[in-house]
Nucleic acid binder design. Structure first.
Lengths: 203, 203
DNA sequence: ACAGTTGTGTACCGATCGGTACGGAACAGG
DNA sequence: CCTGTTCCGTACCGATCGGTACACAACTGT
């Protein structure tokens, strides 16, 4: 991925990152097994050979797509952790979530939910990798909420585990609901409702 | 599906309903495209020929599986509508939901979410049928909440549309979260948190 | 100019996909 | 018994699956 390295041999005729973005979109819309190599390479604008040379195989391509998605489209999740209180973290995260799953020009919902929730047994490492990423997100939210308890803006009686799981659950629900056709405005109002369950910082 | 009809010809050597249940499980675990006919018929305990004779083709089999799932495993959703207040409806629905997505001996999550969220373009009628079913569920919840407004147990300022979408969203989130490995107890506590956002009936 | 290296395009591989042809097995009615 | 009907099992179909062999094109270094 280093572009500074002096290149020897025939130069690549495509941009690996934009090709990966196209692949993300196909996996997102059609799921892992629903996305054939023909579909993928057609969308990426490259031949099968180039794809295998550049990315390995289908599973590797998916792993790279997942990685790129997490680091580029899910930054809002980690940005939200910087909010001053647990309430603000949850609010910022969920509102950003509602926006993300209804971003114009992108498939509705969440790449990880649509492409990695289930898979045939021979591709179980796909869904396992996605489950791991999801769990990591919940862990991050949980440690943030635990800090909120020591910070004092969250009461100890408001179980941080339950709250983290709740916020993640709503976020995942938003993703599913977006696929069913809910609009961005609809989901923002859903988040407004959902936030009533998150305790406000103590005065 | 009538068993009363006098039968002529060689009798069927398997029970169509239990075969359908096995098919549901395979679709549930592996998704529509991830479930091959070999997987399906092996789990159903019948040959390909018998499957085609009895159910049509793969898409027909899925449609029948979806129908059976909706009428057999999602009855709790419609039962919940009978609760006396909007709050009770939401509570009963979500708690039943948490149980349903963590039923021992069945795959975690929800058949419709796992098998019908996305599909290859040539199978788009699959995800379309599932989306339709989901929308019907939300409609039912919405009309129930509207009645709650006229009944007086829900304030008109508590938008029934938003509330119905919220409850559906949480339910769908529970399904996704169950796949990630959340336990039944975990999800029940998530529902307890979620219910704080649903207004209690006015005194 | 030439060798060495790497990407591209075509054409193809075996395996598996969903789906079916066909012959025999198991029943009901005569 | 025989005929008609329906189901079962094997063996197979063309199409598509993920993946690759190989010849050639495009670059760098000498």
């Amino acid at each position: 991925m280093e572009t500074s390295k002096r290149h020897v041999g025939r130069p690549r005729a495509f941009d690996a990152d934009v090709a990966l973005d196209r692949a993300i979109e196909v996996f997102w819309n059609q799921g892992y097994e629903g996305a054939s190599l023909t579909d993928l390479t057609a969308a990426m604008g490259i031949t099968r050979t180039s794809m295998y040379a550049a990315f390995g195989n289908k599973a590797d391509l998916y792993a790279l797509a997942l990685d790129r998605y997490l680091h580029r489209d899910l930054t809002y999740a980690y940005d939200a952790l910087a909010a001053p209180t647990a309430h603000a973290v949850a609010s910022r995260y969920l509102h950003a979530c509602a926006d993300a799953v209804t971003t114009p020009g992108r498939p509705p919902g969440c790449f990880t939910v649509q492409s990695g929730l289930v898979s045939a047994p021979e591709n179980s490492d796909i869904s396992a990798a996605v489950a791991r990423a999801r769990r990591a997100g919940e862990e991050a939210l949980l440690t943030r909420f635990r800090r909120a308890v020591t910070d004092g803006d969250l009461s100890a009686s408001d179980n941080p585990d339950d709250l983290a799981r709740y916020v993640m659950t709503v976020g995942e629900g938003l993703a599913v609901h977006a696929v069913a056709g809910a609009s961005r405005a609809d989901l923002q109002r859903v988040v407004d409702v959902a936030m009533k369950a998150v305790p406000l910082p103590r005065a």
